[in-house]
């Protein structure tokens, strides 16, 4: 992500220091992570100390300071999904992608995270990829779903 695009996002928020989180969220959603250079740029433009930006960026789980894959997989480990076999879904995804929860593969294709409830327990076990929810997952179905992502 280049400085020009970051400046555009910052200008959209009128260079207000109070919009810091909004700016970071937009960079995060476009770039999938917050590179150090981007944080430095934001710090300079918004006149917010880098220590504060880092404090915020490490506080919220929505932000990532390490590269994330193009598709973020969230597998629900909540009670309802758990009893319906979320562990097996997780195992399958781990086998297929070769990454563990919290990791990203080398091609930056997938990032894997476990979450505690996605709020649609009737669809369990639930897997969410890049914001799209896939319900009633089973190990075999998981493979079919993952194949659709490039």
């Amino acid at each position: 992500m280049d400085n020009e695009r970051i400046d555009q996002i910052i200008d959209k928020h009128q260079c207000e220091a109070s919009s810091l989180i909004q700016v970071l969220l937009e960079i995060q959603s476009e770039n999938h992570w917050l590179p150090k250079e981007a944080l430095e740029r934001v710090s300079e433009k918004l006149q917010v100390p880098l220590t504060r930006i880092r404090h915020i960026a490490t506080f919220y789980k929505a932000f990532s300071l390490v590269p994330k894959g193009r598709h973020e997989i969230h597998i629900c480990m909540g009670t309802a999904c758990h009893v319906r076999g979320a562990t097996r879904v997780l195992d399958t995804v781990q086998d297929l992608t070769g990454i563990k929860p919290g990791e990203t593969d080398l091609e930056l294709k997938f990032s894997l995270e476990t979450v505690n409830c996605l709020g649609c327990c009737a669809l369990g076990p639930v897997m969410e990829i890049g914001g799209k929810t896939h319900g009633k997952m089973a190990p075999a179905k998981t493979a079919d779903v993952l194949k659709n992502y490039e």
Binding site: P49, L50, T51, R52, R54, H55, T58, F59
Partner: peptide, 19 residues
């Protein structure tokens, strides 16, 4: 240390990370 650096020295060299 964090507050002294920010409030007195105004350098912001040290801060908290994570939660």
């Amino acid at each position: 240390c964090v507050r002294y650096c920010a409030e007195v020295k105004k350098k912001n060299a040290v801060g908290f990370v994570d939660r």
